[in-house]
């Protein structure tokens, strides 16, 4: 059979981005980011058990400008991954797989993730 260079599907360059596919890839990206956040948590716990000085180094870094920026990013990733993860678990029960409902719950994630992030950062830092 002739192997012409046929378009593959979904071919990212020509495939129109959809809410569902965007939320799906962001779920992966936030998951990878949260793996890094988990290492940060281990660092904090180990520093806490090591002693006052080690923990002060950790909190100074976490409360610095860059530290807070990274923390804010991690909180957003957690909110997003948590909300969208519930969406995935609902799908696993067979609920919400219809196009209409998949979009509706998707928009709920889009609205709630930044809202909860702002609320949590306020609770953590204010």
């Amino acid at each position: 059979m002739a192997t012409r260079a046929r378009p593959l599907s979904p071919h990212l360059q020509v495939y129109r981005p959809q809410l569902t596919s965007l939320l799906s890839i962001i779920h992966r990206a936030t998951g990878v980011a949260l793996s890094a956040a988990a290492l940060g948590l281990v660092w904090g716990v180990v520093a806490l058990a090591t002693g006052q000085q080690a923990f002060a180094t950790f909190t100074d870094l976490a409360n610095g400008f860059i530290g807070r920026l990274v923390c804010a990013g991690f909180v957003f990733c957690l909110m997003y991954h948590w909300l969208n993860g519930l969406r995935h678990l609902a799908w696993d029960t067979g609920w919400g797989l219809e196009i209409k409902r998949a979009y509706a719950t998707g928009w709920v994630v889009v609205v709630l993730a930044p809202t909860l992030t702002a609320l949590l950062l306020w609770l953590l830092w204010a």
Binding site: A38, V42, V45, V46, L48, A49, T50
Partner: peptide, 9 residues
């Protein structure tokens, strides 16, 4: 990571 945080806790 799990082992070191477990021992720390």
């Amino acid at each position: 990571a799990v082992l070191s945080s477990s021992i720390a806790i």
